[in-house]
Computed example of a mutant assay.
Amino acid sequence: MNQDVLRHAPLFSELDDESMTALFAMMGRTRLKRGEVLFREGDAADRLYAVVDGKVKLSRASADGQDSVLAILGSGQVFGELSLFDPGQRSSTVTAVADEVQLASLSHDDLLALLDGRPSVTRGLLALLSGRLRRANDVIGDLVFADVPRRVAKALLNLADRFGESTDEGMYVRHDLTQEELAQLVGAARETVNKALADFVAKGWVKLESRAVIITDMERIVRRAG
């Protein structure tokens, strides 16, 4: 498990080498296969997790049993930080969406000890929480004001920003999501999202592959997301 990946996380990016090595030694290790659940909404919340390799989805179930994907997280991203302030119940379910996922974890008590006397880590935690709140506000605004094609375009850009690789064909984005999961991330019915994607394909803006997309006309997608 590569500790250098953790330096991409705001919480740990300013730690010196000695502190980073000590932190890595105390962290737990977890491996998941696609479809395996790390924890479920309502489970006890007592650890923070960082994705070392692979991708996970954070989801919640509505009263009628419908799932909503809150976020897709990849290497260097952290989740479960709310357990620091509210070590009660998990507010989401975390499931592996890549073939293999590697996670590092830190207990509630160890996280508090890490924060003690390290203002850079505290600043990183505040930045993480602020980013979560900002994204939540953006999602709420999009659900109220944006049509589905715009939300699809924005979702593709967000995924491309974190998981995209430039190729001769365009920006290749291996998102590892099923059609249903992508629709849950957008917050719309699968049929409606598929219709928007089919329109993008017909216009030559994207190409679709299994659990991946190639953005062939980035300028158009950016405009549609605006």
Results as ranks from 00 to 15, higher is better:
S120I: 12
L125R: 07
F79I: 08
A104S: 14
L103G: 08
D110R: 00
N137A: 15
L115T: 02
A104Y: 06
A127E: 15
L129A: 15
R135W: 11
S130K: 09
G131F: 01
V101L: 03
G74T: 10
L133G: 08
V121R: 06
R132E: 10
S105D: 11
G88W: 03
L112P: 03
S83I: 00
S107N: 05
D109H: 08
E81D: 08
G88M: 11
A127H: 09
T122V: 14
G80V: 10
G131R: 00
A127L: 14
E100M: 08
L115S: 01
F85C: 10
L126D: 04
L125Q: 05
D99G: 13
L103A: 07
L106H: 04
G76R: 03
S91P: 10
P119C: 01
R135C: 13
H108W: 01
T95F: 07
D109K: 02
G124I: 02
D138S: 13
V139P: 02
F85I: 09
D99H: 03
V101C: 07
L115H: 00
R123G: 12
L115G: 03
R118V: 07
Q89V: 07
L111Q: 01
G124M: 02
G76V: 07
G80H: 06
A104P: 06
Q77D: 13
D138I: 11
R118W: 00
L133N: 03
E100P: 04
N137K: 07
S130P: 03
A104H: 11
E81W: 01
E100G: 11
R132L: 10
L129Q: 12
A136W: 01
E100D: 15
L125K: 01
L112R: 14
S83F: 05
H108G: 00
S91H: 14
L125T: 10
E81N: 09
R118S: 08
R90P: 09
R123W: 14
V97C: 14
A136M: 12
V78A: 02
R90G: 13
A113K: 07
R134M: 06
G76T: 06
V121L: 10
V97G: 12
E100C: 05
L114G: 02
S120N: 14
R132F: 04
R90M: 12
V101A: 12
L129K: 08
V94G: 09
S75M: 05
N137T: 14
L115P: 00
L128K: 12
S105R: 05
G76Y: 09
V94F: 04
A127V: 10
G76D: 04
Q89H: 13
R132S: 07
S83V: 07
A113Y: 07
A136S: 15
D116W: 11
L115V: 04
N137E: 15
L133T: 11
R90A: 11
D138P: 00
A127D: 15
R132W: 03
L82R: 05
L126P: 02
L111Y: 05
G80N: 05
R134N: 13
P87Q: 08
R132Y: 00
S83P: 00
D86C: 03
G80D: 03
P119I: 02
S75I: 05
